[in-house]
Amino acid sequence: MSSYFEIIRAGINTTFQDDGRKNLYHIGIPFSGAMDKRNYILANSLVGNRIDKPVIEFAYQGPLIKYRGDKINFVITGDVKFKLIKNKNEIDGNCYESYTIEDGDQIDIISTNKSVYGYLAISGEFDLKFQWGSCSINTKANIGSNKGQKLQSSQKIEIQNINQNQIKKKLNYINTRIEKIRVIKGTNFDYFSNEGKKIFFEKEFIVSKLSDRMGMRLEGPYIENIAETNIRSEGLIKGVIQVPADGNPIIMLSDHGTIGGYPKIGVIISADYDKLVQLSSGSKLKFQEVELTDAETLFKLYEMETQNLISQII
C-alpha cells in the first residue's frame, strides 16, 4: 500500500528543506536550507535518519496533515504546539519525542510558541525532486522540490522507504531563546557616525513583520551613515546586516539575494544564527560585538553542544 501525507491545511509558509545548496552564489542562487540548523539536525536524529535528509519546515502556523499508509514514526522539533489525532482522540504532542502514526491519523501543528520555525521529520523518505543536490524550496526563485512552491492544501506527498526497524526516541531539551545576538563588525562599519555605532551596540531593535526566509528587517533608532548610503554591488552571505538609507538594519537570511549594494555594519556570528532566525516579529533584540577568534570558539562550542544533544537521545 502506498503511504502519503495529505495536506488538509498547509500553514503559513510550509516547505521542504535540507542542508541547502553550495557553490551557486556566483550565478545568483542562495544557500537556502533549513533556517534553524540545530533543530533540523535533531529532527532527523530523532527518527533515526541521516542528519542531512529532507524535512518539512513550517513557520508560525504549521500544517494539518492526514496520514495514509503503513506505520511510521514522526517527530517535531522547535518550540511547537501540536496535536496528534487518533480515532477522534486528541493527544497533546511533545517536541523532541517521536510518535508512531498509522493509517487515518492526523497531525495538527497548531503554532510555534514565541518562535518562528519548527520541523517535522519522518522515519522514511518524502518522494521529492532535487535541484542541484538539494530539495530546499526557495519560493522567491521557484527553485527546489514541489516546483519551488510552498505546500498547498489538499496536495499529497508520497512517502517511500519507511524504516522497518524504527524505535521511538526522545530527547530532554528545551529550546531556549536569546535576545542578545553577537556580531562581528562589518566591512563598512566606519561608514556610520560614532553615535550610529553606539546606537547599534547599545539600543534595542524590534523584529519587523516584514521578515521572511530572505531577510529580517529591524526597526529601532536611526543609525546615521556619514559616508555613502550605497556601495558598489557586491556579494552577500547569510547573517550580513545591511543598513540602507532609511537607517533600519536588514539581516540577510538563508534565501537572501546573492548581491547587494547597502553598507554592511556587521555580520551575525555563526554560533548565533539558529537563535536569531527564531526571533518572531515583535521580538526585541540587542547586538553585542565579539572578535573573530571568540566567534570561532563560540561556534566550536555550539557544534559540540549539538553533538552532545544527539548523543543524549534515548
Binding site: 552564489y25 558598489r232 573573530l292
Partner: peptide, 21 residues
C-alpha cells in the same frame, strides 16, 4: 562553499566546521 565575484570584490564563504579564516 561559495564564491561570489562582483565588480571589484570577491567573497569567499567557507564551512567553519572544516576550515577557518
Amino acid at each position: 562553499i561559495n564564491l561570489t565575484p562582483s565588480y571589484n570584490k570577491l567573497i569567499i564563504s567557507f564551512d567553519l566546521k572544516k576550515v577557518n579564516y
